[in-house]
Design a protein around this nucleic acid. Structure first.
Lengths: 187, 187
DNA sequence: GTCTATACGAAGATAGAC
DNA sequence: GTCTATCTTCGTATAGAC
């Protein structure tokens, strides 16, 4: 019960943050949306909004990490596809209004949230680098390449939100695939 | 006089938006920072905050466009360097707290600001594509590659803000340079 | 035309009834 | 332990004195 409510609030917060940023996530709106009294927010999250935000960002981080880890081995292009498809779905399901809550945390004025964003970005980078190395990318280059994939996809999500279409994301993925191909010559 | 005040407000808004997003830009703070009475805001910007935001985003857009246009001809790597150096300076000058106001507009809940962000991103893409084509990139591929550069740099700015260092941006630029080199074989 | 003072709503947070 | 009612602060916006 209580546990479910908590989780629903975290997931709802993640979506609201991904849509409009941390400042646009109102505890009032969230409580109403999830059918929870406003006062209960501070029972579930004694640290208030900041605690909820951090948890929501970590929730998104873990969700995407799991998707990458569970992806089948289909070469560098496959890794890239799995990662970008996750965000393509988020974009499409929200009519290109929602994006990534981790980037929102990274662009917050509160440095506390920067730290959480950094951790998530690094986790994604590491798991992506591992997958790329498994798929034939030289181990020395994989981390740098993984970071580039994360950055380019995050930026492409922003461009797609501005455009209202998946075209920017699609084109960026095309070019990233070229880059990955040239980096994994043994395939 | 009045003209200078207006321009200062636009530039100040651009910085505040780049630092914390549109919601974090308060008209009160801006007026105080620029030494302007709060009420005067609505004399200079009858459309209120929305008008000021749009103008600030366009201001950033024009600023960066001009820098790219005025860059000397030094091949694809040079074009990339000029674009990324602009943002490296913004990051360093703000101790990695400020980023790009255009991305902030793209991630706003208000669709009106998406339109402005789209225009600026497209303008950058076009001028970058032109520079890349001049530098030896096949004209058919230049627009797609330019879009990738914009997206990757925007994302890298976010990663660098989260990390508190320029490392992510530097590494992404390295990989983008590889990609550009492979796309401009005649050099 | 410029600026002071204020209206009005919404934000985060908390006190205290049940 | 849950939830209602409320406190305080800060947001945009405006009315009206000068």
């Amino acid at each position: 019960m209580t546990r479910d409510t908590r989780q629903r609030m975290v997931a709802g917060a993640a979506r609201m943050i991904g849509t409009g940023g941390i400042d646009a996530m109102s505890l009032r709106d969230l409580a109403e949306q999830e059918g929870v009294p406003l006062g209960s927010t501070y029972h579930h999250f004694p640290g208030g909004k900041a605690e909820l935000v951090d948890e929501a960002v970590r929730y998104v981080g873990a969700y995407v990490t799991r998707i990458i880890e569970q992806a089948p081995e289909t070469g560098p292009r496959g890794v890239l596809q799995v990662f970008s498809d996750t965000w393509r779905a988020t974009l499409a399901q929200s009519d290109y209004r929602s994006g990534c809550a981790v980037l929102a945390a990274a662009t917050s004025t509160d440095p506390r949230h920067h730290e959480v964003a950094r951790e998530v970005f690094e986790a994604w980078q590491q798991v992506l680098a591992g997958s790329l190395a498994d798929a034939g990318v030289p181990p020395a280059r994989a981390p740098r390449l993984a970071r580039t994939v994360v950055a380019a996809v995050e930026g492409a999500i922003g461009l797609s939100r501005a455009a209202g279409t998946a075209d920017p994301l699609d084109e960026v993925i095309e070019e990233l695939a070229e880059l990955l191909d040239s980096a994994a010559p043994t395939r």
